[in-house]
Amino acid sequence: MVVMSKLTIRQIAERAEVSTATVDRVLHGRSKVSEKTRIRIEDAVKELNNNNIPELFLQAAKGCYRFKFLIPDRQSNFVADMERSLMLATAALYDVDITCDLHRISFSDGNDLIEALDNIDPDEYQGVGAFAIDAPGVKQAIGRAVERGVNIVTLVSDIPDSARHHFVGIDNVSAGRVVGNLMGRFIGAQDGKVGVITGSLRMRDQMDRFFGFRQIIEERFPQLQLLTVSECNSDPELNRIATSELLQNEPQLLGLYSIAAGNKGILQALDDTDKSPVVIMHELSDPVRKAVAKGQVDAIISQNTDHIARSAMRVLRAYYEGKPIVESQERIRMDILLADNIY
């Protein structure tokens, strides 16, 4: 006999020889299931619980959820932190069993993301979290997945006019505006130029950050000229080359804004020069922390990957169960880190 308080949906599914998703639908009435399958599941509950009536299971069974997360295949400290946080977050919802599948895909274009979304089976996954790239066809692929019954949240980078259910991440336009204000204030009244290095402006988070940044610089600090954005695919070596070229070829360079990942290469280029522009970056890592502490980098805009991961799990569960979301709990905070609070 299985003790009722320990009974799980997975055990019921194995005994009834059906999927965990089917068991969950029967228990919570989320979609139509054949009477034959319903009886099989109820019989399995009785067998496992010494012939107790199935209704008791609704109060004692532990839910089982499987989520898939579509994440960039590029290597960066932020992506590594995000992967770690997603795996740890499976234990954050103590009253359910969560399986987290990570699917690494290329973000060089939207094709891999479209294919991954089109292959999501709503009977296999109760929710999907995806880094979104604003490429042709991606919005439509999200729409097709939602029409099939897939619950989708976008992480870090959003496509707000898509059919996705929720976005989990900071307000990236506000983040860019904050950087613009910091950059202008740190530089002061000097006339000069500001370089911008990013991964790809097809990623909505990066595009929004640049939009907010440019808006503030043009409105409040017109004495600063923005140079052409260098898109380096968040590759440390490409970032190093782009930074070195800016430092060598732009004698009036007063500031440098790194919008995305790959900051290790930028730090290497700064190590090789005696110039000291105002430098502001996104995403915290140990090398960046040390650079801030010694004054090589002036400020970091960071977001907590643990909070993002836990929020994604809670939101996906809420949509699957048809329950409300606590907006204040799921609002991702933007942290501003300087030398004074970096440790």
Rank of each mutant, 00 (worst) to 15 (best):
L93A: 11
K46Q: 15
S258G: 11
I41G: 05
Q59R: 13
K68F: 01
D306V: 08
I142L: 07
Q206H: 12
K193H: 14
E330C: 14
I308N: 07
V153F: 01
A132V: 04
E245A: 13
S5P: 01
Q252L: 14
G29Y: 00
I241S: 05
I308E: 11
S108E: 15
L117S: 03
H166P: 01
K323I: 10
G180R: 00
I266S: 04
R144Q: 12
Y257R: 02
Q329W: 05
D109Q: 06
L56H: 00
V156Q: 08
C64H: 15
S230H: 12
N181H: 15
Q206R: 02
K294Q: 15
E245S: 12
V315K: 01
Y65H: 10
A89K: 09
V156H: 07
S200P: 04
R164K: 09
H166D: 11
F107L: 09
S85Q: 11
L254S: 09
E219R: 11
Y94Q: 15
G149V: 11
H103K: 14
I300Y: 03
G129E: 09
G322F: 04
N341E: 08
R314K: 15
D271L: 11
S157F: 03
N239Q: 08
A261V: 09
R240L: 10
E55F: 13
G143K: 03
R209Y: 04
S200I: 04
L284R: 10
I53R: 11
G176N: 11
R209E: 07
R84W: 08
F67C: 05
L238R: 13
A130D: 04
M281G: 08
F213N: 02
Q248F: 03
R177T: 00
M4L: 15
F107P: 00
V156F: 13
S234W: 01
G322Q: 02
L238D: 09
P122F: 10
I105A: 05
L337K: 12
L337F: 10
F186Y: 14
R30K: 14
I152K: 03
Y65G: 05
G262K: 02
P136A: 07
